[in-house]
Design a binder for these strands. Structure first.
Lengths: 203, 203
DNA sequence: CAAATATACTGAACACTGTTCAGTATATTT
DNA sequence: AAATATACTGAACAGTGTTCAGTATATTTG
């Protein structure tokens, strides 16, 4: 019988409806300022309904994070295409930083917001791992071609990620205000710093 | 008349009472999970009383931040004492990272938590600037002695701070779980990475 | 010293939050 | 047509930051 299939379809459609409304509001107002009631209002359902499709607000977050990790990977694949692995590494760094500057609320919810890290939620881990692998693969290539001072992939990944994340998150929290720059200057300086940093670790 | 002076004294004592209770609870349970009512209960006053001494919860945060920036500066002065500016730079980085790992809730509230950045609140800006200057002064020394590949103090400060902050904050948000390390390994790896990074930018 | 005033504090109330769940209305199966 | 299963509601619960009329105490004034 096709009824149960239609029901299944309706269920995923409903999840998508909730998800798209939630995502839109997260991007506009941020995760914290978006309430379940607001989301419910937006899709013209009662608050309780959302809990029939998502266990709690965190589960909405996890799904958005998974999607966002995927988007970041897409950005990497689009922008970090150099065949020179060191150049590619620079492209990865710049793409990461620009992604954060261009999507502040998304970046916030991907990497800064406090929420119990979920272990299950396959899309989350899968996309997260794949995105991270894009970086480590590039580093492996750099190291195997003996292009970097670094010999350890993990340490390289840690450095590049920490540097990039540090730049984005300090800027998002207005901590770079101490350096008195316009928004454009921040963008330029961050890009130049990524470039300079990778030049420094290049042999 | 000594009455107004006693009143003044009582007022600062009351602020201190609130502050010390708030700080204790922030460190134990985190800023977000500490409520004004909890603080009021702890000092056996009504919630409304706290608002007679602090405009809102953010103002409590700003004061704690100011104190914490001061503490970080103290840690710098204690641990980053090398006369060799590059060595000193390494000490600053390691001290920063350890400070974050040792005081996770404090670090969270200093640099990660989302709150409208306050412009006034002198202790805040003063301590923040002084702590930042400790880093820039060291970098100026490094650069003036031509010890680094870097020639721009601002870019150096940005790199060192971003790298250190990135490491601490990614770890605090469990994002380094992807690298599968024990807590001790994380500590070692972060320290080694700081060292390795500064070695890389050293001439 | 008593009355008037100033100060300190209270705690109920407001408008929110995430979450739950008995009850209802609709759809499906018997 | 009756019984059952599903989907949804919206009031209720316990919590949040914040405000403010009212009270109780301390100080000043006549």
């Amino acid at each position: 019988m096709g009824i149960s299939e239609r029901k299944e379809r309706e269920k995923t459609e409903m999840k998508q409806l909730i998800m798209s409304a939630a995502l839109k509001m997260f991007l506009e107002d941020g995760y914290a300022k978006t309430s379940i009631r607001n989301i419910a209002d937006a899709i013209e359902y009662s608050p309780g309904t959302i809990y029939l499709y998502y266990k709690d607000k965190d589960e909405l977050l996890y799904e958005v994070q998974g999607l966002a990790y995927g988007e970041l990977l897409t950005a990497f694949k689009k922008n970090a295409t150099s065949t020179n692995p060191v150049e590619k590494l620079v492209q990865i760094g710049k793409t990461y930083v620009n992604f954060g500057l261009d999507n502040p609320e998304l970046y916030d919810l991907m990497f800064i917001i406090r929420a119990p890290m979920n272990v299950d939620e396959t899309i989350h881990k899968d996309n997260g791992d794949q995105t991270f692998d894009f970086l480590t693969d590039c580093l492996k290539e750099c190291i195997s071609q003996n292009l970097l001072r670094l010999k350890d992939v993990n340490m390289g990944a840690l450095q590049v990620w920490s540097m990039s994340h540090g730049m984005v998150s300090l800027n998002l929290r207005c901590r770079l205000k101490i350096m008195e720059m316009t928004e454009d200057q921040v963008r330029e300086t961050l890009a130049a710093s990524i470039e300079n940093y990778i030049a420094s670790i290049t042999l």
